[in-house]
Amino acid sequence: MNLISRISARSPWLYRINAGSCNGCDVELATTACIPRYDVERLGCKYCGSPRHADIVLITGPLTVRVKDKVLRLYGEIPDPKVTVAVGICPISGGVFRGSYAVCAPIDQYIPIDVNVPGCPPRPQAILEGVAMAIEIWKERL
């Protein structure tokens, strides 16, 4: 691994996709994991508003049928190299919505998932650990 990859890995920008989540995980992502106490910015992370700026994608929700096409299209808009983190139990197995006619979970049938962060919702510490693991994987791809 050369120097440029090592430096690049210190600037992972986060992007959130809500694939039909109940918002529980989104609250954990948007507020709890971002508040001063947990501070993802010390890892060099930054939440970005545009999929084009994203490096690490955080997906929440069981991928409902109605948002499936939009999520897949959005995922295609994210420039390589990228790493995907499934946040919460819903994208991993469907969680409480498992077996419903309205969801397409597990999400890794459609999108390659690199890190799973289970929980309903996961604790902020778990999300931060997931992001840290994603950074390690991202380093290999740069």
Partner: peptide
């Protein structure tokens, strides 16, 4: 907060995307 060199890291990263 991020390291003081963070904007440099960001710039190097963007060249790899």
């Amino acid at each position: 907060g991020p390291p003081l060199m963070q904007p440099f890291f960001d710039l190097v990263k963007l060249t790899r995307k």
